[in-house]
Design a protein around this nucleic acid. Structure first.
Length: 490
RNA sequence: GGCGACGUAGCCAAGUGGUAAGGCAGAGGUCUGCAAAACCUCCACACACCGGUUCAACUCCGGUCGUCGCCUCCA
Protein backbone atom coordinates (compact mmCIF):
# COMPACT_ATOMS: atom_id res chain seq x y z
CA UNK A 1 0.00 0.00 0.00
CA UNK A 2 1.41 3.35 -0.97
CA UNK A 3 1.49 6.30 1.36
CA UNK A 4 -0.91 8.97 0.23
CA UNK A 5 -0.79 12.57 1.35
CA UNK A 6 -2.97 15.58 0.75
CA UNK A 7 -0.98 18.11 -1.21
CA UNK A 8 -2.26 21.65 -0.77
CA UNK A 9 -0.67 22.56 -4.08
CA UNK A 10 -3.02 20.25 -5.98
CA UNK A 11 -5.85 20.17 -3.49
CA UNK A 12 -5.87 16.40 -3.63
CA UNK A 13 -4.54 13.31 -2.00
CA UNK A 14 -1.73 11.86 -4.03
CA UNK A 15 0.78 9.09 -3.71
CA UNK A 16 3.88 10.20 -1.88
CA UNK A 17 6.99 9.52 -3.92
CA UNK A 18 10.18 11.07 -2.54
CA UNK A 19 12.51 12.84 -4.93
CA UNK A 20 15.24 10.36 -4.08
CA UNK A 21 14.23 6.77 -3.39
CA UNK A 22 14.37 5.95 0.28
CA UNK A 23 15.11 9.49 1.42
CA UNK A 24 12.79 12.27 2.44
CA UNK A 25 13.56 15.95 2.83
CA UNK A 26 11.14 17.84 5.00
CA UNK A 27 10.86 21.39 6.29
CA UNK A 28 8.35 22.72 8.78
CA UNK A 29 7.88 26.32 9.79
CA UNK A 30 8.85 26.64 13.42
CA UNK A 31 8.00 29.48 15.71
CA UNK A 32 8.87 33.11 16.13
CA UNK A 33 10.48 33.17 19.53
CA UNK A 34 9.05 36.17 21.33
CA UNK A 35 6.59 34.49 23.71
CA UNK A 36 5.47 31.17 25.14
CA UNK A 37 3.96 28.73 22.68
CA UNK A 38 0.22 28.15 22.71
CA UNK A 39 -1.55 24.89 22.12
CA UNK A 40 -2.02 25.76 18.45
CA UNK A 41 1.73 25.60 18.09
CA UNK A 42 1.58 22.34 19.97
CA UNK A 43 -0.85 20.92 17.45
CA UNK A 44 1.33 21.77 14.52
CA UNK A 45 4.47 20.45 16.16
CA UNK A 46 2.84 17.24 17.34
CA UNK A 47 1.43 16.53 13.91
CA UNK A 48 4.68 17.02 12.08
CA UNK A 49 6.47 15.07 14.77
CA UNK A 50 4.17 12.14 14.03
CA UNK A 51 4.69 12.54 10.30
CA UNK A 52 8.44 12.56 10.88
CA UNK A 53 8.15 9.43 13.01
CA UNK A 54 5.89 7.64 10.56
CA UNK A 55 8.07 8.30 7.53
CA UNK A 56 10.96 6.71 9.38
CA UNK A 57 8.75 3.84 10.49
CA UNK A 58 8.06 3.29 6.78
CA UNK A 59 11.79 2.80 6.35
CA UNK A 60 12.57 6.19 4.86
CA UNK A 61 15.61 8.15 5.84
CA UNK A 62 14.28 11.56 6.76
CA UNK A 63 16.10 14.85 6.98
CA UNK A 64 13.81 17.09 8.96
CA UNK A 65 14.46 20.82 9.29
CA UNK A 66 12.51 23.12 11.59
CA UNK A 67 13.55 26.72 11.95
CA UNK A 68 13.50 29.36 14.61
CA UNK A 69 12.59 32.85 13.53
CA UNK A 70 14.86 34.71 15.88
CA UNK A 71 14.83 38.15 14.32
CA UNK A 72 11.63 39.93 13.40
CA UNK A 73 9.51 42.96 14.21
CA UNK A 74 7.59 41.22 16.97
CA UNK A 75 10.77 40.17 18.71
CA UNK A 76 12.23 43.62 18.42
CA UNK A 77 9.09 45.27 19.76
CA UNK A 78 8.77 42.85 22.62
CA UNK A 79 12.41 43.17 23.53
CA UNK A 80 12.04 46.92 23.52
CA UNK A 81 9.03 46.71 25.85
CA UNK A 82 10.94 44.50 28.25
CA UNK A 83 14.15 46.43 27.92
CA UNK A 84 16.26 43.46 26.94
CA UNK A 85 18.31 42.85 23.82
CA UNK A 86 16.30 41.08 21.09
CA UNK A 87 18.79 38.26 20.89
CA UNK A 88 18.46 37.62 24.60
CA UNK A 89 14.70 37.50 24.33
CA UNK A 90 14.90 35.06 21.43
CA UNK A 91 17.34 32.90 23.32
CA UNK A 92 15.09 32.76 26.33
CA UNK A 93 12.03 31.66 24.38
CA UNK A 94 13.97 29.09 22.44
CA UNK A 95 14.69 27.56 25.82
CA UNK A 96 11.03 27.75 26.79
CA UNK A 97 10.08 26.18 23.46
CA UNK A 98 12.24 23.17 24.21
CA UNK A 99 10.76 22.79 27.66
CA UNK A 100 7.30 22.53 26.12
CA UNK A 101 8.32 20.31 23.23
CA UNK A 102 10.19 17.92 25.48
CA UNK A 103 7.18 17.58 27.74
CA UNK A 104 5.03 16.74 24.73
CA UNK A 105 7.45 14.07 23.59
CA UNK A 106 8.44 15.81 20.38
CA UNK A 107 11.63 14.55 18.84
CA UNK A 108 14.40 16.83 17.74
CA UNK A 109 14.50 17.49 14.03
CA UNK A 110 17.70 16.79 12.14
CA UNK A 111 18.48 20.49 11.88
CA UNK A 112 17.07 23.45 13.78
CA UNK A 113 18.49 26.47 12.06
CA UNK A 114 18.00 30.04 13.14
CA UNK A 115 17.42 32.90 10.74
CA UNK A 116 20.28 34.91 12.21
CA UNK A 117 22.63 32.04 11.53
CA UNK A 118 21.94 32.11 7.81
CA UNK A 119 22.31 35.71 6.74
CA UNK A 120 24.84 34.89 3.97
CA UNK A 121 22.44 32.38 2.40
CA UNK A 122 19.62 34.89 2.62
CA UNK A 123 21.72 37.59 0.98
CA UNK A 124 22.68 35.19 -1.76
CA UNK A 125 19.06 34.50 -2.69
CA UNK A 126 18.21 38.18 -2.74
CA UNK A 127 21.23 38.83 -4.92
CA UNK A 128 20.06 36.14 -7.29
CA UNK A 129 16.58 37.62 -7.37
CA UNK A 130 18.01 41.01 -8.13
CA UNK A 131 20.05 39.54 -10.93
CA UNK A 132 17.01 37.76 -12.33
CA UNK A 133 15.03 40.99 -12.24
CA UNK A 134 12.57 40.07 -9.47
CA UNK A 135 13.89 42.34 -6.75
CA UNK A 136 14.20 46.07 -6.48
CA UNK A 137 15.75 48.30 -3.91
CA UNK A 138 14.03 51.18 -2.20
CA UNK A 139 15.05 53.34 0.68
CA UNK A 140 13.22 51.15 3.20
CA UNK A 141 14.59 47.91 1.86
CA UNK A 142 14.57 45.40 -0.95
CA UNK A 143 11.27 44.10 -2.29
CA UNK A 144 10.07 41.22 -4.37
CA UNK A 145 8.09 42.18 -7.42
CA UNK A 146 5.12 39.88 -7.24
CA UNK A 147 3.71 40.70 -10.66
CA UNK A 148 6.88 39.52 -12.33
CA UNK A 149 6.38 36.01 -11.03
CA UNK A 150 3.82 34.48 -13.36
CA UNK A 151 2.91 31.58 -11.06
CA UNK A 152 2.12 33.75 -8.08
CA UNK A 153 -0.99 32.48 -6.33
CA UNK A 154 -0.70 28.85 -7.40
CA UNK A 155 -0.59 27.50 -3.85
CA UNK A 156 -3.33 29.63 -2.31
CA UNK A 157 -5.38 29.72 -5.52
CA UNK A 158 -5.50 33.45 -5.68
CA UNK A 159 -5.77 35.73 -8.61
CA UNK A 160 -3.48 38.71 -8.41
CA UNK A 161 -5.92 41.15 -9.93
CA UNK A 162 -8.76 40.15 -7.65
CA UNK A 163 -6.46 40.37 -4.69
CA UNK A 164 -5.45 43.85 -5.58
CA UNK A 165 -9.00 45.08 -5.90
CA UNK A 166 -9.64 43.82 -2.40
CA UNK A 167 -6.31 44.74 -0.97
CA UNK A 168 -6.24 47.18 1.86
CA UNK A 169 -4.45 50.45 1.53
CA UNK A 170 -0.84 49.80 2.20
CA UNK A 171 0.87 52.36 4.34
CA UNK A 172 4.23 51.52 2.92
CA UNK A 173 4.39 53.89 -0.04
CA UNK A 174 7.83 52.65 -0.81
CA UNK A 175 6.65 49.52 -2.52
CA UNK A 176 5.94 49.70 -6.22
CA UNK A 177 2.94 47.47 -5.78
CA UNK A 178 0.92 46.75 -2.63
CA UNK A 179 1.37 43.03 -3.26
CA UNK A 180 5.13 43.22 -3.13
CA UNK A 181 6.81 42.04 0.01
CA UNK A 182 10.07 42.76 1.76
CA UNK A 183 13.13 40.61 1.20
CA UNK A 184 15.44 42.85 3.18
CA UNK A 185 14.46 45.52 5.65
CA UNK A 186 16.71 48.50 6.17
CA UNK A 187 17.36 48.86 9.86
CA UNK A 188 16.49 51.83 11.97
CA UNK A 189 18.88 52.95 14.69
CA UNK A 190 18.97 50.53 17.59
CA UNK A 191 17.60 47.60 15.64
CA UNK A 192 19.54 44.42 14.96
CA UNK A 193 21.37 44.79 11.67
CA UNK A 194 23.64 42.92 9.32
CA UNK A 195 25.69 44.33 6.50
CA UNK A 196 24.47 43.63 3.02
CA UNK A 197 24.92 44.91 -0.52
CA UNK A 198 21.82 47.01 0.13
CA UNK A 199 22.99 48.50 3.38
CA UNK A 200 22.58 47.50 6.99
CA UNK A 201 19.35 45.67 7.73
CA UNK A 202 17.67 42.39 8.48
CA UNK A 203 15.90 39.73 6.44
CA UNK A 204 12.20 39.88 5.70
CA UNK A 205 10.13 37.15 7.23
CA UNK A 206 9.59 34.90 4.22
CA UNK A 207 13.13 34.80 2.88
CA UNK A 208 14.59 32.93 5.82
CA UNK A 209 12.55 29.82 5.12
CA UNK A 210 13.55 29.85 1.48
CA UNK A 211 17.19 30.20 2.44
CA UNK A 212 17.33 27.65 5.22
CA UNK A 213 15.23 25.00 3.51
CA UNK A 214 17.26 25.00 0.33
CA UNK A 215 20.51 25.25 2.26
CA UNK A 216 19.84 22.04 4.15
CA UNK A 217 17.58 20.19 1.76
CA UNK A 218 18.28 21.44 -1.74
CA UNK A 219 15.65 22.46 -4.24
CA UNK A 220 13.19 21.04 -4.82
CA UNK A 221 12.69 19.19 -1.58
CA UNK A 222 9.88 16.82 -0.65
CA UNK A 223 7.67 18.10 2.13
CA UNK A 224 6.99 21.56 3.43
CA UNK A 225 4.62 21.83 6.34
CA UNK A 226 3.00 24.42 8.52
CA UNK A 227 -0.28 25.79 9.75
CA UNK A 228 -3.05 26.57 7.35
CA UNK A 229 -2.69 30.26 8.01
CA UNK A 230 0.76 30.18 6.48
CA UNK A 231 -0.52 29.20 3.05
CA UNK A 232 -0.98 32.84 2.24
CA UNK A 233 1.07 34.88 2.15
CA UNK A 234 4.03 33.13 3.77
CA UNK A 235 4.26 29.96 1.72
CA UNK A 236 3.08 31.64 -1.45
CA UNK A 237 5.91 34.10 -1.06
CA UNK A 238 8.42 31.38 -0.33
CA UNK A 239 7.50 29.71 -3.59
CA UNK A 240 7.80 32.95 -5.52
CA UNK A 241 11.21 33.79 -4.08
CA UNK A 242 12.73 30.37 -4.34
CA UNK A 243 11.48 29.54 -7.78
CA UNK A 244 12.31 32.96 -9.16
CA UNK A 245 15.81 32.78 -7.73
CA UNK A 246 16.72 29.25 -8.71
CA UNK A 247 14.49 28.54 -11.69
CA UNK A 248 13.41 25.17 -10.34
CA UNK A 249 10.31 24.07 -8.43
CA UNK A 250 10.55 24.72 -4.70
CA UNK A 251 8.55 22.01 -2.93
CA UNK A 252 6.92 18.79 -4.07
CA UNK A 253 4.31 18.25 -1.34
CA UNK A 254 2.75 21.00 0.75
CA UNK A 255 1.11 19.84 3.98
CA UNK A 256 -0.97 22.15 6.15
CA UNK A 257 -2.60 21.49 9.48
CA UNK A 258 -5.97 22.88 10.47
CA UNK A 259 -6.52 25.19 13.37
CA UNK A 260 -7.21 24.73 16.96
CA UNK A 261 -10.43 26.50 17.80
CA UNK A 262 -11.96 27.81 20.97
CA UNK A 263 -15.74 27.84 20.84
CA UNK A 264 -15.63 27.36 17.09
CA UNK A 265 -13.34 30.31 16.67
CA UNK A 266 -9.77 30.22 15.57
CA UNK A 267 -7.43 30.42 18.48
CA UNK A 268 -4.72 32.95 17.89
CA UNK A 269 -2.58 35.51 19.52
CA UNK A 270 -4.27 38.29 17.63
CA UNK A 271 -7.68 37.26 18.96
CA UNK A 272 -6.29 36.81 22.45
CA UNK A 273 -8.26 33.61 23.00
CA UNK A 274 -5.33 31.31 23.45
CA UNK A 275 -3.95 28.98 26.06
CA UNK A 276 -0.26 28.46 26.39
CA UNK A 277 1.07 24.94 26.51
CA UNK A 278 2.36 25.72 29.93
CA UNK A 279 -1.04 26.70 31.29
CA UNK A 280 -2.57 23.49 30.07
CA UNK A 281 0.22 21.31 31.41
CA UNK A 282 -0.28 22.78 34.87
CA UNK A 283 -3.65 21.03 34.86
CA UNK A 284 -3.13 17.81 32.96
CA UNK A 285 -0.25 15.55 31.99
CA UNK A 286 1.25 16.27 28.57
CA UNK A 287 0.17 12.93 27.15
CA UNK A 288 -3.44 14.00 27.51
CA UNK A 289 -2.79 17.04 25.36
CA UNK A 290 -0.90 14.97 22.84
CA UNK A 291 -3.76 12.48 22.72
CA UNK A 292 -6.35 15.19 22.21
CA UNK A 293 -4.31 16.72 19.42
CA UNK A 294 -4.01 13.40 17.63
CA UNK A 295 -7.68 12.58 18.11
CA UNK A 296 -8.75 14.71 15.16
CA UNK A 297 -7.43 14.43 11.63
CA UNK A 298 -4.68 16.99 11.16
CA UNK A 299 -6.36 18.90 8.36
CA UNK A 300 -9.63 19.38 10.25
CA UNK A 301 -10.36 22.09 12.76
CA UNK A 302 -10.06 20.91 16.36
CA UNK A 303 -12.40 22.50 18.84
CA UNK A 304 -10.71 22.69 22.19
CA UNK A 305 -12.57 22.76 25.48
CA UNK A 306 -11.75 21.82 29.04
CA UNK A 307 -14.20 18.93 29.18
CA UNK A 308 -12.35 17.29 26.33
CA UNK A 309 -9.24 17.13 28.46
CA UNK A 310 -11.01 15.37 31.30
CA UNK A 311 -12.59 12.87 28.93
CA UNK A 312 -9.27 12.27 27.28
CA UNK A 313 -7.67 11.76 30.63
CA UNK A 314 -9.81 8.65 31.17
CA UNK A 315 -8.77 7.26 27.82
CA UNK A 316 -5.09 8.00 28.39
CA UNK A 317 -5.21 6.30 31.77
CA UNK A 318 -6.62 3.24 30.11
CA UNK A 319 -3.79 3.08 27.60
CA UNK A 320 -1.25 3.36 30.39
CA UNK A 321 -3.03 0.68 32.39
CA UNK A 322 -2.72 -1.64 29.44
CA UNK A 323 0.93 -0.69 29.07
CA UNK A 324 1.45 -1.57 32.73
CA UNK A 325 -0.32 -4.85 32.24
CA UNK A 326 1.86 -5.62 29.26
CA UNK A 327 5.08 -4.73 31.06
CA UNK A 328 4.08 -6.88 34.01
CA UNK A 329 3.91 -9.98 31.86
CA UNK A 330 6.82 -12.33 31.55
CA UNK A 331 7.11 -14.22 28.32
CA UNK A 332 9.89 -15.25 25.99
CA UNK A 333 9.66 -13.63 22.57
CA UNK A 334 7.91 -16.18 20.43
CA UNK A 335 7.40 -16.09 16.69
CA UNK A 336 3.89 -16.60 15.31
CA UNK A 337 2.88 -20.18 14.61
CA UNK A 338 -0.83 -20.62 14.40
CA UNK A 339 -0.59 -24.37 14.74
CA UNK A 340 0.51 -24.00 18.35
CA UNK A 341 -2.53 -22.03 19.43
CA UNK A 342 -5.48 -23.39 21.32
CA UNK A 343 -8.90 -22.74 19.80
CA UNK A 344 -9.54 -19.90 22.25
CA UNK A 345 -6.17 -18.38 21.44
CA UNK A 346 -6.87 -18.67 17.74
CA UNK A 347 -9.89 -16.45 18.15
CA UNK A 348 -7.79 -13.77 19.78
CA UNK A 349 -5.09 -14.18 17.17
CA UNK A 350 -7.61 -13.56 14.42
CA UNK A 351 -8.40 -10.20 15.96
CA UNK A 352 -4.88 -9.31 17.02
CA UNK A 353 -3.14 -10.05 13.77
CA UNK A 354 -4.75 -7.34 11.64
CA UNK A 355 -4.43 -4.57 14.25
CA UNK A 356 -1.01 -3.30 13.24
CA UNK A 357 -1.59 -3.63 9.49
CA UNK A 358 -4.81 -1.66 9.88
CA UNK A 359 -2.94 0.94 11.88
CA UNK A 360 -0.39 1.27 9.09
CA UNK A 361 -3.18 1.48 6.54
CA UNK A 362 -4.71 4.36 8.49
CA UNK A 363 -1.42 6.20 8.68
CA UNK A 364 -0.83 5.60 4.99
CA UNK A 365 -4.06 7.40 4.30
CA UNK A 366 -2.82 10.94 4.82
CA UNK A 367 -1.73 10.26 8.40
CA UNK A 368 -5.14 9.40 9.76
CA UNK A 369 -4.24 9.45 13.44
CA UNK A 370 -7.83 9.19 14.74
CA UNK A 371 -8.22 5.90 12.93
CA UNK A 372 -4.77 4.85 14.08
CA UNK A 373 -5.74 5.57 17.67
CA UNK A 374 -8.80 3.41 17.17
CA UNK A 375 -6.45 0.52 16.46
CA UNK A 376 -4.41 1.35 19.53
CA UNK A 377 -7.57 0.94 21.61
CA UNK A 378 -8.35 -2.34 19.91
CA UNK A 379 -4.94 -3.46 21.03
CA UNK A 380 -5.49 -2.18 24.55
CA UNK A 381 -8.60 -4.30 24.87
CA UNK A 382 -6.76 -7.32 23.51
CA UNK A 383 -3.87 -6.89 25.93
CA UNK A 384 -6.26 -6.70 28.88
CA UNK A 385 -8.15 -9.70 27.64
CA UNK A 386 -4.97 -11.71 27.28
CA UNK A 387 -3.96 -10.87 30.81
CA UNK A 388 -7.39 -11.60 32.26
CA UNK A 389 -8.75 -14.70 30.64
CA UNK A 390 -7.53 -17.94 32.16
CA UNK A 391 -8.30 -20.02 29.14
CA UNK A 392 -5.78 -18.06 27.09
CA UNK A 393 -2.87 -18.93 29.34
CA UNK A 394 -1.68 -22.12 27.71
CA UNK A 395 1.91 -21.97 26.49
CA UNK A 396 3.42 -21.44 24.03
CA UNK A 397 0.37 -19.69 22.61
CA UNK A 398 0.29 -17.21 25.43
CA UNK A 399 3.88 -16.09 24.83
CA UNK A 400 3.22 -15.87 21.16
CA UNK A 401 0.18 -13.65 21.59
CA UNK A 402 1.93 -11.41 24.08
CA UNK A 403 4.93 -11.12 21.80
CA UNK A 404 2.75 -9.96 18.95
CA UNK A 405 0.80 -7.59 21.18
CA UNK A 406 3.94 -6.08 22.65
CA UNK A 407 5.49 -5.58 19.24
CA UNK A 408 2.36 -3.93 17.90
CA UNK A 409 2.11 -1.72 20.95
CA UNK A 410 5.71 -0.59 20.71
CA UNK A 411 5.37 0.05 16.99
CA UNK A 412 2.32 2.23 17.50
CA UNK A 413 3.90 4.04 20.36
CA UNK A 414 6.96 4.75 18.26
CA UNK A 415 4.85 6.23 15.49
CA UNK A 416 2.39 8.23 17.54
CA UNK A 417 4.80 9.23 20.25
CA UNK A 418 1.98 8.16 22.51
CA UNK A 419 2.03 7.05 25.21
CA UNK A 420 4.97 9.33 25.82
CA UNK A 421 6.56 7.69 28.83
CA UNK A 422 6.75 4.47 30.75
CA UNK A 423 3.67 3.86 32.92
CA UNK A 424 5.48 4.29 36.22
CA UNK A 425 6.75 7.68 35.14
CA UNK A 426 3.29 8.71 34.05
CA UNK A 427 1.71 7.65 37.34
CA UNK A 428 4.37 9.48 39.26
CA UNK A 429 3.79 12.72 37.34
CA UNK A 430 0.02 12.39 37.71
CA UNK A 431 0.46 11.94 41.44
CA UNK A 432 2.73 14.96 41.66
CA UNK A 433 0.24 17.00 39.70
CA UNK A 434 -2.71 16.15 41.93
CA UNK A 435 -0.70 16.64 45.11
CA UNK A 436 0.53 20.00 43.90
CA UNK A 437 -2.98 21.08 43.04
CA UNK A 438 -4.12 20.41 46.59
CA UNK A 439 -0.88 21.44 48.26
CA UNK A 440 -0.54 18.01 49.75
CA UNK A 441 2.29 15.60 50.30
CA UNK A 442 2.36 11.90 49.62
CA UNK A 443 2.58 11.30 53.38
CA UNK A 444 -0.79 12.98 53.83
CA UNK A 445 -2.37 10.45 51.53
CA UNK A 446 -0.53 7.55 53.12
CA UNK A 447 -1.77 8.63 56.53
CA UNK A 448 -5.37 8.70 55.35
CA UNK A 449 -4.93 5.28 53.80
CA UNK A 450 -3.59 3.93 57.07
CA UNK A 451 -6.58 5.37 58.92
CA UNK A 452 -8.92 3.79 56.45
CA UNK A 453 -7.24 0.41 56.73
CA UNK A 454 -7.60 0.54 60.48
CA UNK A 455 -11.28 1.18 60.04
CA UNK A 456 -11.51 -1.66 57.57
CA UNK A 457 -9.74 -4.01 59.93
CA UNK A 458 -12.31 -3.06 62.55
CA UNK A 459 -15.08 -3.69 60.00
CA UNK A 460 -16.03 -0.04 60.26
CA UNK A 461 -16.74 0.17 56.57
CA UNK A 462 -18.79 3.32 56.84
CA UNK A 463 -15.79 5.23 58.11
CA UNK A 464 -13.53 3.57 55.56
CA UNK A 465 -15.81 4.71 52.78
CA UNK A 466 -15.91 8.25 54.09
CA UNK A 467 -12.15 8.47 53.88
CA UNK A 468 -12.07 6.96 50.44
CA UNK A 469 -14.73 9.35 49.20
CA UNK A 470 -12.92 12.32 50.63
CA UNK A 471 -9.78 11.37 48.77
CA UNK A 472 -11.74 10.62 45.64
CA UNK A 473 -13.14 14.14 45.72
CA UNK A 474 -9.57 15.36 45.44
CA UNK A 475 -8.90 13.10 42.48
CA UNK A 476 -7.09 10.49 44.53
CA UNK A 477 -8.42 6.99 43.98
CA UNK A 478 -7.67 4.01 46.15
CA UNK A 479 -7.28 0.47 45.04
CA UNK A 480 -7.42 -2.40 47.47
CA UNK A 481 -5.26 -5.30 46.45
CA UNK A 482 -4.10 -8.44 48.20
CA UNK A 483 -0.75 -6.70 48.62
CA UNK A 484 -2.28 -3.68 50.30
CA UNK A 485 -3.89 -0.42 49.32
CA UNK A 486 -2.39 1.70 46.59
CA UNK A 487 -3.50 5.05 45.30
CA UNK A 488 -3.31 6.87 42.03
CA UNK A 489 -4.35 10.22 40.65
CA UNK A 490 -7.42 10.44 38.51
C1' G B 1 -17.02 40.03 -2.79
C1' G B 2 -13.11 35.92 -4.07
C1' C B 3 -11.19 31.13 -2.43
C1' G B 4 -11.76 27.01 0.95
C1' A B 5 -13.36 23.66 5.03
C1' C B 6 -17.07 21.58 7.87
C1' G B 7 -22.37 19.92 9.58
C1' U B 8 -22.33 11.66 11.69
C1' A B 9 -25.31 8.96 18.35
C1' G B 10 -25.75 12.61 25.04
C1' C B 11 -20.44 14.59 23.98
C1' C B 12 -15.74 13.97 20.96
C1' A B 13 -14.55 11.68 16.37
C1' A B 14 -13.31 8.09 11.98
C1' G B 15 -15.43 6.08 7.65
C1' U B 16 -17.55 3.56 3.08
C1' G B 17 -21.76 3.63 -3.39
C1' G B 18 -24.66 -1.73 -0.88
C1' U B 19 -27.44 -0.34 5.33
C1' A B 20 -22.17 3.21 10.39
C1' A B 21 -14.24 2.48 13.68
C1' G B 22 -12.71 4.18 18.25
C1' G B 23 -12.95 7.24 22.85
C1' C B 24 -15.92 9.52 26.84
C1' A B 25 -20.52 9.28 29.29
C1' G B 26 -24.66 5.73 30.39
C1' A B 27 -27.23 0.59 31.52
C1' G B 28 -26.73 -4.60 33.08
C1' G B 29 -23.32 -8.58 34.57
C1' U B 30 -18.41 -11.00 36.61
C1' C B 31 -14.89 -9.55 40.52
C1' U B 32 -14.94 -6.71 45.43
C1' G B 33 -16.86 -5.74 52.52
C1' C B 34 -18.26 -1.74 49.23
C1' A B 35 -15.44 0.30 45.47
C1' A B 36 -11.59 0.94 41.73
C1' A B 37 -9.21 -1.45 37.61
C1' A B 38 -10.08 -5.22 34.11
C1' C B 39 -13.38 -8.36 31.29
C1' C B 40 -18.43 -9.59 28.98
C1' U B 41 -23.15 -7.61 27.06
C1' C B 42 -26.10 -3.35 25.53
C1' C B 43 -26.13 1.81 23.64
C1' A B 44 -27.14 5.74 15.56
C1' C B 45 -34.80 2.56 11.41
C1' A B 46 -30.84 5.81 8.70
C1' C B 47 -25.14 10.32 9.04
C1' A B 48 -28.15 19.23 8.62
C1' C B 49 -32.33 20.02 4.93
C1' C B 50 -34.37 19.65 -0.24
C1' G B 51 -33.89 17.75 -5.03
C1' G B 52 -31.13 14.67 -8.78
C1' U B 53 -28.04 10.41 -10.71
C1' U B 54 -28.09 5.01 -9.49
C1' C B 55 -30.66 -1.52 -8.90
C1' A B 56 -28.67 0.90 -4.36
C1' A B 57 -26.27 7.25 -1.30
C1' C B 58 -24.71 8.98 4.73
C1' U B 59 -20.87 8.26 0.79
C1' C B 60 -21.56 11.15 -6.16
C1' C B 61 -24.04 15.89 -8.43
C1' G B 62 -27.00 20.51 -7.68
C1' G B 63 -29.33 23.77 -4.33
C1' U B 64 -30.78 25.60 0.74
C1' C B 65 -29.64 26.57 5.77
C1' G B 66 -25.91 26.76 9.54
C1' U B 67 -20.78 27.06 11.48
C1' C B 68 -15.79 28.27 10.62
C1' G B 69 -11.14 29.68 8.06
C1' C B 70 -7.91 32.46 4.50
C1' C B 71 -7.83 37.04 1.55
C1' U B 72 -3.63 41.63 7.21
C1' C B 73 0.94 39.56 11.73
C1' C B 74 -0.51 34.39 13.06
C1' A B 75 0.81 27.04 13.82
Amino acid sequence: MPLRVYNTLHRAKEEFVPGQPGRVTMYVCGVTVYDHCHIGHARSQVIFDVIYRYLRYRGLQVTYVRNFTDVDDKIINRAHELGVPPQELAERFIGEFYTDMNALGIERPTHEPRATGHIPQIIEIIRQLEKNGYAYKKKSGVYFSVRKFADYGKLSRRDIDEMQSGARVDVDEDKKDPLDFALWKASKPGEPAWDSPWGAGRPGWHIECSAMSSHYLGQPFDIHGGGQDLVFPHHENEIAQSEAAVGRPFVRYWLHNGFLQINHEKMSKSLGNFFTIREVLAKIPPEVLRFVLLGVHYRHPLDYFDGALQEAREAVDRVYTAAETLRAQTFAPTEPDEAKLTPAQKEIWAVLQPVLPTFVEAMDDDFNTPRALGQLFELVTLINTLATKGKLKDEPGRAMLFTAAARAFDAMRGVLGFPIAEPADYRRRCAELVLAQHEMKAEDVERRIAERNQARAAKDFARADVIRNELAALGILLKDTPAGTTWYAK
